[in-house]
Write a protein that binds this DNA or RNA. Structure first.
Length: 479
RNA sequence: GUUCCCUUCGUCUAGAGGCCUAGGACACGUCCCUUUCACGGAUGUAACACGGGUUCGAAUCCCGUAGGGAACGCCA
């Protein structure tokens, strides 16, 4: 043990009532980066005190998605539900210290107070009936809640690292409940006790908690605990500026995997959303953590833009390992045999240059995964209907059949160019396009001579033969 | 309703009083490259919400207005 521990501790504290929200993922990323930046710790706390809504499945899903993104945390996750006793202990300590009190009002009474306040255009609040009353006068048989004595006058100020100085009149703050009548802690109270006990120095979370920060600060101060720094980051909105919801498509971090995005691309995109380091656009989360300052988080909310994510993802696909991408494609399309996998791996280098997502890549990969007979798409069959194309196909077939068994792309291309020169006045497309249509079944593909090499002479001849039959059966346009 | 927060190209953002005739990225247009589609390269369109101050000077500071968001539970 050396100096008193002043290093940073940040946390991500999801409540397991659903999947990991994309905004939550970004919050986790910010916390992770800041902890790393300062050489501190990042911890995970599961806020599962809502027993009715928390599920083990949600916990698993959240942890799975965090891991997918590559966000790791120090130690074991803390489960808030297991800390009930400590939360109660602190609440009672506050009562003893005269900082909190028992309140015997019924939920019905509180409801009428709220309604009255609202009707008068005031902030709905508890009327502090039991604040200074002798508990001896309490009605028999009523289990009390514990409420904090909030200051009545003055202002409270928080110097938020993102939002700047935020000030609110104490008259706006309520004597909120710390411990429910059944002895369980409220969220507001549990968060403070846990943040303190876990040594959290920086609370980085969604700005929907900005108002809560004032209430929580009260509890920290009542206990004489140091108040952590706050950084309230704005929410992520849908493309239309409204709150992100199901109709915007992806909402859960896990869905991005389904949509074909790489975790490093999602991290990069999310980090860039609301945080910046000058004009830098492409960076890993490790790089970001070196630059990361909470004060560089934007105070305004931002919108999700999948087009930009596509662009970033395309970049990471280009530099991704071929074997990894091959596995991701195979995982998506289902099992295939070793020969297909081998072809796909060999062709991956050219394939990955032109796809923005794994979904597209899997679609393009059909070039290597499907066998004859296969379908020609509309444009390909149009090309194959051409009179010249039919002739060209015969020339191509004969020329490639004469090629050696090593079947190199340069030789293939040379053979095709010869045909173009001799038969089509050097118009390469006259030869290349039918060839592409026959091999790929589509009019777009990687460089087709290279694809042919990957496919191998046997498979190429198969596909050409099939195309020849198809052209014969389907007739062709005459000039 | 009350309180709090926010407001730079369509989108993400740079910008901490003069470096701003406002920069970058995505998207979009045009051109080049090219056997296709992409990639890549070049280039173009496009923004300081509005109104008042403060200042020699404001995208930057202050105040209003408008618009957007959040919070006001014995939910988290």
């Amino acid at each position: 043990m050396t100096a008193p521990d002043k290093s940073t501790v940040t946390r991500f504290a999801p409540s397991p009532t659903g999947f990991l929200h994309i905004g939550g993922a970004r919050t986790a990323l910010f916390n992770w980066c800041y902890a790393r930046h300062t050489g501190g710790k990042f911890v995970l706390r599961i806020e599962d005190t809502d027993k009715a809504r928390s599920t083990p499945d949600a916990i698993d899903a959240i942890i799975r998605d965090l891991k997918w993104l590559g966000i790791d945390w120090e130690g074991e996750p803390v489960f808030q539900s297991k800390r009930d006793a400590r939360h109660a202990e602190v609440a009672h300590e506050l009562v003893k210290a005269g900082k909190a009190y028992f309140c015997y009002c019924s939920p019905e009474e509180l409801e009428t107070m709220r309604a009255d306040a609202l009707a008068k255009g005031e902030q709905p609040r508890y009327n502090r009936f039991w604040r200074d009353r002798d508990p001896a006068t309490a009605p028999a048989g009523v289990k009390p809640v514990i409420r904090i004595k909030a200051p009545i006058e003055g202002d409270s100020v928080i110097n938020d690292l993102v939002q700047g100085e935020v000030r609110v009149a104490n008259s706006q703050l309520d004597d909120m409940i710390l411990l429910r009548s059944d002895g369980s802690p409220t969220y507001m109270h549990a968060v403070v006790v846990d943040d303190h006990d876990m040594g959290i120095t920086h609370v980085v979370r969604g700005d929907d908690h900005l108002n809560n920060a004032f209430r929580q600060k009260l509890i920290f101060e009542a206990m004489g605990w140091s108040v952590p720094e706050f950084a309230h980051v704005p929410l992520i909105h849908g493309p239309d500026g409204a709150k992100l919801s199901k109709r915007h498509g992806a909402q859960a971090a896990g869905e991005f995997k389904e949509l074909g995005y790489l975790p490093e691309a999602v991290c990069n995109y999310l980090l860039r959303l609301g945080w910046s380091h000058g004009d830098d656009e492409i960076f890993t989360k490790e790089q970001a953590s070196e630059w990361f300052e909470l004060t560089n988080i934007n105070a305004a909310p931002s919108r999700l833009d999948l087009k930009k994510l596509d662009h970033i993802n395309a970049h990471y696909m280009k530099i991704a390992d071929d074997a990894r991408l091959t596995d991701l494609v195979l995982e998506r399309v289902g099992a295939t045999d070793a020969a297909h996998k081998d072809r796909l791996l060999k062709g991956m280098h050219d394939l990955k240059q032109r796809a923005a997502t794994i979904v597209q890549l899997a679609s393009d990969a059909q070039l290597y995964l499907k066998d004859t007979p296969f379908e020609y798409d509309e444009k390909a069959s149009h090309t194959l209907h051409d009179h010249d194309a039919h002739h060209a196909m015969h020339y191509i077939y004969d020329a490639l059949a004469r090629l050696g068994a090593d079947f190199k792309d340069t030789d293939i291309e040379a053979a095709l160019k010869t045909i173009a020169n001799e038969k089509y006045e050097g118009k390469l497309a006259k030869v290349m396009m039918p060839f592409r249509a026959a091999l790929a079944g589509t009019m777009t593909s990687p460089p087709i001579a290279k694809a042919a090499e990957v496919l191998g002479q046997g498979e190429v001849m198969n596909r050409l033969k099939y195309a020849l039959h198809w052209m014969h059966d389907h007739g062709h346009h005459h000039h």
